[in-house]
Lab assay of single mutants.
Amino acid sequence: SIEEEIKKAEEAKEKGKTFIHGDFVATTEELLDELLKRLRKKL
């Protein structure tokens, strides 16, 4: 679910890890923020 993806992305951000969502690879905090923004729009 979208909620689960958001939670996983937030955890990755806290730990400074890379998060992959489909073909979107978030390797930096900026990219994770962008991904979180996109996911929240889908809610």
Rank of each mutant, 00 (worst) to 15 (best):
A12N: 02
K37G: 07
K42V: 09
R38V: 14
L43C: 14
G16Q: 05
E34A: 07
T18A: 13
A12Q: 03
E3S: 07
L35M: 01
E30H: 11
K13L: 11
E14N: 11
D33G: 06
V25P: 04
D23W: 13
V25H: 13
E4Y: 07
E34P: 00
L43K: 05
K7P: 04
F24Y: 07
E11R: 04
L35I: 08
L39S: 00
S1A: 11
D23N: 12
E5L: 15
E30L: 11
T27D: 15
T28M: 13
K8H: 08
G16L: 07
L35V: 03
L35A: 01
K17T: 14
A12D: 03
A9R: 02
K42Y: 13
K17I: 15
F24I: 07
L36N: 00
I20W: 06
K42C: 11
L32I: 13
R38M: 15
H21V: 06
K13T: 01
S1H: 10
T27I: 09
R40I: 12
E29K: 14
K41V: 07
K7Y: 06
A26R: 02
I2G: 02
L36F: 01
V25N: 09
T27F: 14
L32C: 00
A26D: 01
E14C: 14
E4P: 02
K37N: 11
K8V: 03
G22S: 05
K7S: 07
K7F: 07
L35K: 00
L36S: 00
T18S: 10
F24H: 03
I6Q: 04
K42W: 15
R38P: 01
I6E: 02
T27E: 09
G22F: 09
K8M: 12
E29I: 15
A26T: 03
D23V: 12
K37F: 08
T28N: 10
T27Q: 05
L36R: 01
A9P: 01
E30M: 08
E14P: 01
K15D: 05
E4C: 14
L32P: 00
T28D: 05
E3N: 06
V25I: 12
V25M: 12
A12M: 04
E30D: 09
V25T: 06
E34W: 12
R38E: 14
E5H: 09
E10M: 13
L35E: 02
D33E: 12
K41F: 06
E11K: 04
K13E: 02
K13V: 03
L43A: 03
L32D: 00
K41G: 07
K41Y: 05
I20D: 01
K37C: 15
D23R: 01
F19A: 04
R40G: 07
G16D: 03
L35G: 00
L39D: 01
L31Y: 04
K15M: 12
K7A: 13
K42S: 09
K7N: 06
D23C: 14
K42P: 06
I6Y: 03
E11D: 12
A9K: 02
H21G: 08
L32V: 04
F19G: 06
